[in-house]
Amino acid sequence: MSLKNSLVHAIAEMQEEEAIRLTRAMVDSGASPMEVLDAAREAMDIVGQRYEKGIYFLPELMMAGEILSQMAEIVKPLLAQAPAVKKHGRVLIGTVAGDIHDIGKNIVVFMLDVNGFEVMDLGVDVPPQKFVEAVKEFKPQVVGLSGFLTLAFDSMKETIKALEVAGLRNQVKVMIGGGSVDEHVRAYTGADAWGRDAMAAVNLAKQWIGG
């Protein structure tokens, strides 16, 4: 097995130390940072598929994220001269006003990122106006609103309303998720779709943007 294939395997199988060792070995053997990141992407495809099939769960997503960020640290010094990767499209995301939960949102951000989307994360307790400003500047195709509390239903609705008032609603697709979000909530807030987990968000983004 080539170094790269071994690395893909190590990441996909959650072998943290082995993956880091192989990353260093690849870099030392003169591989370009792009090759290393390619391996990461390939591995994350496998992880994503296994997550979708219900073989992998949150511990595996967290561990994969941890491995990837350590790998990124290793290749970072070499990345300056590398060409930028073309992204599929842009997704703006945040936990809506009044809600400070971020675990679910962070997983969605991570999964969108490794699936090739450019993600802008506005953090937690984001007021509607901040979403509006960010849509104007970042020009995303998709806006993801996260919220765990039932209080977030209203904030989601107000955020979508604010996009409408600003004349931006028809430029973006809006997806919502978190806590007790379901079809009732989707209809109430006026979002385009809702999702139960991170892969649902990735699939919605792919469906709307392609990639």
């Binding site: 039932t150 239903f153 007790s180 379901d182 009732h184 209809a187 109430y188």
Partner: peptide, 9 residues
């Protein structure tokens, strides 16, 4: 009984 039904139903 869903929370969403209490609010949005």
């Amino acid at each position: 009984v869903p929370a969403s039904l209490f609010y949005a139903g």
